[in-house]
């Protein structure tokens, strides 16, 4: 058996060895993204949106919630609208571009912070369930099953019906109810890791349970968590815009892409620009996040050669 492995190692010729240059996690990540044009573009698109969100007050040409009825429903500039209002104005004379820019904040905040809540909650409960097993595992996994059997959006609507609207509430509700995938995945991995030698070794040198769980096991699942969370950012951005579209997301007058779309629907016959621009914005960011997520999955898949 052992000699067989040795023979295989020696059988690897020099050129093949050269190909395996990617060594560290970061190396593989960088190389994987930057040798793949769609992923690179997506990364820059995401960075662009993030910068827009952070510097919204500096970039936006107008106040996004300032009503000016005289200037209402002006088309985009290239269709003969008012100069200075590049993408036109809405039914209350507010600048569409400025609202779009501020709307980025809502979408990205929900996508980012709710994902963090989900990952932290899911990973913690998953590790605990997998590590301790027994009764605790049963309870956590029952809870998990239960939640996976119930649509996220319906649950969110029902809870928002009860607790009321608000960006913070939205983030918490979407975040807390997003833990189930992470929990399930992490538990499965931890069950496998529990029997590994390095865990045994850590225990021998006297590491506490918490230390073993979070210092030794967690790093083994971070790459997959990253992939899972990239897809959930996309799903959450859509969930937020859906809820805002239904009028259950962020309360007015805070601009969000979802409630802009919902306003736009009313003026579809006369003012197409109200609905189209926020829709395109959602489409672009979600597409970018999905493409990057797909690529990350390939990168962390050991079978993919980069």
């Amino acid at each position: 058996m052992a000699s067989n492995t040795m023979a295989q190692v020696q059988a690897i010729d020099q050129p093949a060895l050269k190909k395996v240059r990617v060594r560290t996690f970061g190396d593989r990540l960088r190389r994987g993204i930057f040798t793949h044009a769609p992923a690179t573009i997506s990364l820059f698109v995401i960075i662009f949106f993030a910068l827009v969100a952070i510097f919204a007050p500096l970039i936006a040409p107008h106040d996004p919630i300032k009503v000016d009825i005289i200037k209402r429903l002006q088309p985009p500039v290239w269709q003969g609208g008012l100069p200075g209002y590049i993408l036109g104005t809405d039914q209350m004379g507010r600048d569409v571009l400025s609202r779009l820019i501020y709307g980025t904040r809502v979408s990205l905040q929900v996508g980012f912070f709710a994902t963090i809540i989900s990952v932290v909650l899911g990973a913690t409960l998953g590790i605990i369930a997998g590590f301790y097993g027994g009764r605790l595992d049963d309870i956590i996994m029952r809870l998990n099953d239960m939640q996976r059997a119930f649509p996220f959006l319906v649950l969110a609507i029902a809870i928002i019906a009860a607790v009321g609207q608000g960006l913070d509430k939205l983030i918490i509700v979407l975040g807390v109810f997003g833990w189930s995938n992470y929990g399930r995945f992490v538990r499965g991995e931890v069950l496998g890791l529990r029997e590994k030698e390095f865990v045994e070794a850590a225990r021998t040198i006297g590491a506490s349970n918490a230390r073993i769980m979070f210092q030794h096991m967690l790093p083994n699942v971070t790459s997959t968590l990253l992939v899972l969370s990239s897809f959930s950012v996309a799903a959450l951005i859509i969930a937020e815009s859906s809820l805002s579209f239904l009028g259950l997301g962020v309360p007015l007058p805070t601009p969000s892409w979802g409630n802009m779309l919902s306003d736009g629907r009313e003026y579809m016959e006369t003012a197409w620009w109200l609905a189209i621009f926020p829709g395109i914005a959602i489409g672009i960011i979600v597409l970018a996040v999905n493409v990057l997520g797909d690529r990350l999955r390939d990168i962390f898949d050991a079978r993919t050669t980069l």
Binding site: S241, S242, M268, A275, G279, I282, V286, V291
Partner: peptide, 22 residues
């Protein structure tokens, strides 16, 4: 398929309404 997967259903709906109804 990738683009469809990234488009919120209600945005697709609005585009369809703009084209086929309006």
């Amino acid at each position: 398929a990738l683009i469809l997967q990234s488009t919120p259903s209600f945005f697709l709906g609005i585009i369809l309404v703009l084209i086929f109804a309006v």
